[in-house]
Each structure stands twice: as structure tokens, then as C-alpha cells.
């Protein structure tokens, strides 16, 4: 009845919210998996111990389908559907690992890395870092292009900071503020490359409607939103190499 809340498990991210429907049997990477109706292919894969790499999905939020990292192959379907927004069906046959999928995912992740501080790739422990490892990417082939690496850090909140340089605009923070907290303080401002996370109408976090519940920090996969207490002596961003 309350699967979305009660079936969450510590230390395991199913990718999309657990559901409480009738059991549905399918095959993921050759293994039979049974999950409740209404579940996503991503959840079925996680339940079957073949987790699909992901960035914009997490099991405390409804699926969004924006990051394109969780692409899979489904027998009898064209193209590469996103595992997070595709619901399971009886008898479905899913493949989560193939040379083509690997190539596609690497391409997507490299694009994300092209606008991410290169200095922060080694030694990190965020979800992004886990995904990098899963996909087998540590760098990108692109030259220095337009980026957000110089955007100012918002340190107004006493407890957490927002570094836009690490933001991949996956909207998890915005959705957490809406779906979990119900405050609607965050938004994505601008379009295309200029789009960025903003509190209220582009105010500092402290001056916005933000109630500092921390749901956005918890949801952020890149530690772009991160607790200040994890840094000794304040937050000093590594300087990007000169162009």
C-alpha cells in the first residue's frame, strides 16, 4: 500500500520508486526476475543484481528520463529505451550490457565530463564517480569548450554549498524539493547550455524559500550540493587549467 516509502532499503538504490502491484516475471541479462507491476525496467535490473548505470534516477524520486545513461535493449523493441521510464511487462527480455550499450553510455558520460572539473574526477566518491567506474570512463576527448567551471559557488546556507561547476542539471534536487519536501523552492533556470539550478528566482539559497531540509543535498548525484561539514577549512575549488 505504501511501497514507495516502505520498500526503500538503505545502501541500495533501486533507481525508481518501489511499487506494490501484482508480480510480473521478466528476464534481465538471461536471469529470470519477478517484480511488482508498475516497476521500471531499471528497478527490475537492480532487483536482479544487474544494476544499470544511471545519473538522473534514484528510488526516492519518480523517473525523469533525462540523463540517457540508463539505456538498455529490449527484445522486439526498436532503439535503446531508457530503463528508468520503461515499465516492466510480462515476458519482457532485457539486455543491460552489450558492446553497443557500452559505447553509447561512454559517449554520454564523456559529454558530462567535458563540463566537470577534471581535477575532481580522481579520488571522488559521489554517485557520478560510481557511474564513471561502472561505465569505465575517467576522461573525455574534447578540448576546452564553453563550461560552467567559473560559475560562483553559493555558500550562503550555513550547512551546505552549491557548486555549479559540478552540476549536471539532472533536476534531482529540483524534484526532491517538490516531491519529497513539497516546498518548490528550486527550479531550472534558462534553456539549453545556459540552464542551471536556481533557488527561487535566482536568489542565494539562504534568501530563497528553501527550508534547508537537505533533500536536495541527499539527492544530488555529483556532490554539487554538498554538506560543508565534509570540508576542513572551507571549500576551495581547484583552479581549472588556463585556456
Amino acid at each position: 500500500m505504501w511501497s514507495e516509502l516502505r520498500d526503500l532499503r538503505e545502501g541500495q538504490d533501486l533507481g525508481t520508486p518501489p511499487r506494490g502491484g501484482e508480480p510480473v516475471a521478466l528476464v534481465v541479462d538471461g536471469k529470470p526476475v519477478t517484480v511488482p507491476a508498475g516497476s521500471s525496467v531499471m528497478l527490475a535490473a537492480a532487483a536482479g543484481s544487474c544494476p544499470v548505470p544511471k545519473l538522473c534516477a534514484t528510488d526516492t524520486l519518480e523517473a525523469f528520463g533525462s540523463c540517457r545513461v540508463c539505456l538498455v535493449e529490449i527484445q522486439g523493441r526498436k532503439g535503446y529505451p531508457a530503463a528508468c521510464t520503461t515499465l516492466v511487462e510480462p515476458g519482457m527480455v532485457v539486455t543491460t550490457q552489450s558492446p553497443r550499450l557500452h559505447e553509447l553510455r561512454q559517449g554520454v558520460v564523456e559529454l558530462y565530463l567535458s563540463d566537470f572539473p577534471q581535477e575532481d574526477v580522481p579520488g571522488g566518491w559521489s554517485e557520478l564517480h560510481e557511474t564513471l567506474q561502472q561505465v569505465g570512463v575517467a576522461s573525455h576527448p574534447y578540448g576546452q569548450g564553453e563550461n560552467h567551471l567559473q560559475a560562483p559557488v553559493d555558500e550562503s546556507n550555513p550547512y551546505f554549498l552549491f557548486d555549479p561547476a559540478k552540476c549536471i542539471v539532472c533536476s534531482r534536487c529540483v524534484r526532491a524539493c517538490e516531491e519529497i519536501q513539497g516546498t518548490f523552492a528550486l527550479t531550472i533556470q534558462g534553456r539549453g547550455f545556459a540552464s542551471q539550478v536556481a533557488a527561487s528566482q535566482g536568489e542565494r539559497f539562504l534568501d530563497s524559500e528553501c527550508v534547508s531540509c537537505g533533500a536536495c543535498v541527499q539527492a544530488c548525484p555529483t556532490q554539487s550540493l554538498v554538506e560543508k561539514s565534509l570540508f576542513v577549512g572551507g571549500y576551495h575549488r581547484a583552479q581549472p587549467p588556463k585556456a
Partner: peptide, 23 residues
């Protein structure tokens, strides 16, 4: 103690928190 992370299996909060308990 460096941070308080809401427990996903907490039956009262299901992984959510507020500014007091969290920070």
C-alpha cells in the same frame, strides 16, 4: 560526527529530514 543522513528505512521519515535533525 560530520553529518546526519536521514535513514531510508526509518519508518517515521522514510529517508526525509528537516533542517533541525539533518543539520
Amino acid at each position: 560526527i560530520v553529518r546526519m543522513i536521514p535513514w531510508k528505512e526509518g519508518k517515521a521519515n522514510h529517508g526525509h529530514a528537516c533542517v533541525k535533525g539533518r543539520f
